[in-house]
Nucleic acid binder design. Sequence first.
DNA 1: TCAATTGCGTTATGCTATAACGTGTGCAAT
DNA 2: ATTGCACACGTTATAGCATAACGCAATTGA
Lengths: 132, 132
Amino acid sequence: MNAPQMTRNQALVFDVLEKAEGPLSAYTILDKLRDQGFRAPLQVYRALEKLLEYGVVHRLESINSFVACAHPGENCHSHGIVAFAICESCGQVIEFHDHEVDHRLMGWVRSQKFKPAKTTIEIRGTCEACAA
Amino acid sequence: MNAPQMTRNQALVFDVLEKAEGPLSAYTILDKLRDQGFRAPLQVYRALEKLLEYGVVHRLESINSFVACAHPGENCHSHGIVAFAICESCGQVIEFHDHEVDHRLMGWVRSQKFKPAKTTIEIRGTCEACAA
DNA sequence: TCAATTGCGTTATGCTATAACGTGTGCAAT
DNA sequence: ATTGCACACGTTATAGCATAACGCAATTGA
């Protein structure tokens, strides 16, 4: 899925996520966009749904939040499985990819004839800076 | 963490999860335990919290649900990272472990000096039976 | 005995997400 | 041009998930 032209709402939501230092919840995004006319959660969720489709935003399942993809311009769907390290102290998220992990998981999936749709890898803990 | 003696509430919740065919949400568990005197979500959540500590129950972050550990009697915390394949059609969950995946993720974590606390690997898709 | 800990019950509340309805706009086919 | 469709949007209402804060009771150990 490639990003066609973003609508106004999609662009606003994406902009908020890009400028954020870490992941944001849908309701936090909503609050940040009240001045631009946002009034209801659905406005955010609908935009997020599209941004996820376009591959420019990721959803962090373990913390019910959303984050802009770390590869500006590119489509993250082409990088294989995306993994995240989430610092529970400062909130920062590091996005990374490991082909060997992909390979192992896809191997297992094939051996089970399981058809994967969406895979989540999230490591919650403490980043180097916060571990001090 | 080893399971000491379960309290009545913990045992009731665990029992429901063990007998279930798939993962259950906290509120579903609550409904199933109304006859045993459960009245409020917190009764379930508090029990779940302990069962997670004991390592006999897992939380599926991507579907806000809970499932009994697939290794009856053992403590799942000793098996390394636990991964799940979740069938979005029939709801069944397959729990598995892959040491190579663990190894790769832990390697990345060490290289980043990131201190992991809890790692989630969940593959949502369609199981063999449902793929037909 | 006293204090600390742990589990429990209850009420209230907050956060996350979607259903269902209707409106407007752009665009393609007739 | 008109019709029909697809899509984004706005709004209200509601469903689903999770925890805060209070108080009580039982247990334990100093």
